[in-house]
Design a protein around this nucleic acid. Sequence first.
DNA 1: TCTGGGGTCCTAGGACCC
DNA 2: TCTGGGGTCCTAGGACCC
Length: 425
Amino acid sequence: MSTFALVDCNNFYASCERVFRPHLVNRPIVVLSNNDGCVVARSHEAKVLGIAMGVPLFQVRHIVEQYGVVVLSSNYALYGDLSERVTSVLAAAAPRIEVYSIDESFLDLDRLAVPDLTAWCRDLRTRVLRWTGIPVSIGIGPTKTLAKLANRIAKGSQRVEGVLDLSGNPAWTEAALRKTAVGDVWGIGFRWSKMLVNHGIGTALDLRDAPDMWIRRRMGVVGLRTVHELRGIACHDLETEPAPKQTTCCSRTFGEAVTDNVQVRDAIVAFATRAIEKIRTANQVCGTIQVFIATDRFDTAAQQYASSATCAFMTPTADSRSIVAAAIRIFERLWRDGFAYRKAGVLLLDLSSAKNIVPSLFTDEPPQSRPLMKAIDQVNARFGRGSIGLGLSARAAPWRMRQEHLSPRFTTRWHELPVARIDLD
DNA sequence: TCTGGGGTCCTAGGACCC
DNA sequence: TCTGGGGTCCTAGGACCC
């Protein structure tokens, strides 16, 4: 029998924006996706105004104007840094931790010899708030799915003071399952939720009690695992070591549509370069590269075209020259004149550790690859990303994304540090 | 005018090979 | 001309998560 806690930061991006700008407290805030397109995070006040997750900003413009909602571009430098601070407080408190996402961690409470888990978690919650400025909620349960569910209820309830423990409490668990809509269960998305409701399964309790065979047939093994977890049978363990990535991706929707081959190619080169940096940082090599380009799928008047293609390397590589050259070759193959492109991306697939690649006689890796790449990474680490590169990517291009409401990177740039003024008069 | 990015796992059909 | 099993690779898409 296990006991998991899920610690989830409340309205994380909005809370981050408030840490160094206290005048934003109690005001409705929305944070936007790249290109300032969709709402990806909302403060409690913004949720109350009826601004939905994921809506395009232009669709809620009237609410924003009427209620003076604060609109901000995503500031990942700030969110990433505050996330690490929260995580480090949690890691110091719990014996084992799984960092699940930028704003969530699972803790293993099994080996924690404390008589009262709820009290311990309330204390942890206070500490995180005091040390980082970020409010969190904590759910406890015998499986990850039940801890998630407990967390949801803890967030929505004033009474429980941010912590709900469902472990070893069948009556509370049943009540919690009954008041949770099936679509709010971890692992049940939009489609499955619709399908389940159509079959009379409206709550988490209904789902828990659904027959195995039926679930297996309609939702596969993945869905069946979720049902077992609702019954208290743990199917997902804590993953304390992040599994090495199998793929990495860099893609963007362009700030505006692009018809010029050279400009899209520049974007592809930039995306490939960024993706390669990611795998080299993780000390990985890639076996296959995939490139895709696409027109604007929302522009129904425009001619649509989307295509992708892959290329396998003879030897897995992390060499910028090989990978960028392959990206350009694939791109030229995909390119069709006469379309307005709006999105493109580069995926690096079949990733593996750089340590155990077997050198091949027929390698396509240029000589001196490793020391050269290391030198490039070191220069960029010291003087900033993009200081040195292949001389192929344009600095200013129409496809660069829009970020018109960006807040300062308070904690990671010297010239953007918050300033406290004390009035001595 | 304005609609994100980065992941995982699973399934399926077509081309091609032996 | 038709017949078959078993395999890989590529492309695409569907479902989910944050």
